[in-house]
């Protein structure tokens, strides 16, 4: 039996050339492909625009050593959407940029992207870990269009910048942005923790109901609908800061500070908080 027909648990999918239209990779999870042969994987149908084509039309598929449920994508996948969508276990590694809906609705497992992601990354993510070395587009960690709840669990790490509406309607989980964040950061936040190390855009915390925003770098001026509370928050701050310190960089030394705390958005429920440690 040739290697191409031998069942495997891990695969490398190398994109030969950028597709002419958007390519939908939703459902292409390590769990779904485990136990198949590279030839079987190459026959998987993918939506390309409004037609389905075999995966092998775009990707070279090879088996990887090891039985761990793993998928490695290689190439410029900026037109490939839905990578890791609804992921419920296993690991996906993307060596390059990816399109929209990266890790949308994922419940468990791990996704690592060495490049940048498009819009709606980690939207409605419920568990697992998503690590993007580059930037993410608008509406990351938010809700799918028309839905009421955004990210609801897990850990999202953005090592570059984030677009607008990061964490819109987010209700649980932790999201870190090592770089800057766009306008309407944490808008309509229901709960969860967002930590940002760079500059933030306009209307930060707009309509924030609960949840925590931590500013590890530049300290923005809270808007008039956020008010200071004078009490000692050192206990919860230490718990949060120690947790974030594991991610290093600008978050490594947060615990030594004593943050100022503002609550708002008073125009909404007013139980959200900004922690400004510098």
């Amino acid at each position: 039996m040739s290697a191409n027909n031998r069942a495997a648990g891990a695969f490398r999918l190398r994109l030969r050339a950028q597709p002419a239209l958007r390519l939908d990779l939703a459902g292409l999870t390590p769990g779904a492909l485990a136990g198949q042969s590279p030839a079987d994987v190459a026959r998987c149908p993918l939506w390309h625009g409004n037609e389905t084509v075999p995966l092998g039309e775009f990707f070279d598929v090879s088996a990887l050593a090891g039985d761990d449920a793993t998928l490695v994508f290689d190439g410029d996948l900026a037109r490939c959407d839905g990578i890791g969508r609804e992921l419920d276990g296993g690991r996906i590694r993307v060596e390059g940029d990816v399109g929209d809906y990266l890790g949308a609705g994922m419940r468990a497992g791990e996704i690592t992207v060495t490049g940048s992601a498009g819009m709606l990354a980690a939207c409605e993510m419920a568990g697992g870990r998503l690590d993007v070395a580059g930037d993410v587009g608008d509406y990351a960690a938010s809700a799918l269009p028309g839905d009421m709840d955004g990210m609801r669990g897990g850990l999202l790490i953005v090592r570059g910048d984030a677009g607008a509406r990061f964490g819109d309607r987010m209700r649980r989980g932790t999201a870190l942005v090592f770089g800057a964040a766009g306008d309407f950061l944490a808008s309509r936040l229901v709960a969860g923790t967002i930590a940002v190390a760079g500059e933030v855009g306009a209307h930060c915390g707009y309509g924030m109901r609960r949840g925590t925003l931590i500013f590890a770098g530049p300290q923005p001026e809270p808007p008039p609908t956020f008010v200071p509370t004078g009490h000692d928050v050192q206990v919860i701050w230490t718990l949060l800061a120690r947790s974030l310190a594991a991610h290093g960089g600008p978050f490594a030394a947060l615990a030594v500070g004593r943050p100022r705390r503002f609550v708002g958005d008073l125009a909404a429920d007013g139980k959200g908080e900004w922690l400004l440690p510098a």
Binding site: A191, T193, V233, I236
Partner: peptide, 18 residues
């Protein structure tokens, strides 16, 4: 409520802080 690393904590306002 605050979830940190999978553990849920409650922060109850009291007269010396929380």
């Amino acid at each position: 409520s605050k979830m940190i690393d999978g553990r849920r904590y409650w922060r109850v306002p009291v007269m010396d802080g929380e």
